[in-house]
Amino acid sequence: MSKQHVTTTVNGDPTEFLAAPGTTLLDALRDELGLTGAKEGCGSGDCGACSVVVDGRLVCSCLMLAPEAEGRRIETIEGMAQGGRLHPLQQKFLEHAALQCGFCTPGFLVAAKALLERNPDPDETEIRYWLAGNLCRCTGYDKIVRAVMDAAAEMRQVRRAS
């Protein structure tokens, strides 16, 4: 089957790629664009390792077809650090040791960022339910939840100061 030409924006930059109609956005990101930060853990939308944001909405990129990205804005883990600076969530994940193997980490960070953009002051329960679509088998989630709470607090402080 011939491939389709897809024009999109990835992490702020205009991007074009070719994809067969049945290709998932995840495969296009990984195989066509070389953005391997999003991972395939299940291919069925259950683990969240492939989380990306499309037009402001958190999605499992394994459940979206690549041609559906036409004309949309896609944000991936690769766009999270700005220049030489880590996003506060990335920094707090490191400080709190919120990762062990690191495979689920990009998905958690993308999902947590989407949460904090909606709710800058989530409580523990809100964080746990928001992140319930992301599986981590290593950490027991404790340090992940703490890292998100700490990052949220720091981001609120920065916002107040500015």
Partner: peptide, 23 residues
């Protein structure tokens, strides 16, 4: 002590290469 892990930045930026990330 509790220093930041040396491979940490690779893993929070999506740069770390896992089994399926090579071609």
């Amino acid at each position: 002590e509790r220093p930041i892990r040396p491979d940490g930045v690779d893993k929070v930026t999506g740069r770390a290469q896992f089994g399926a990330d090579f071609n």
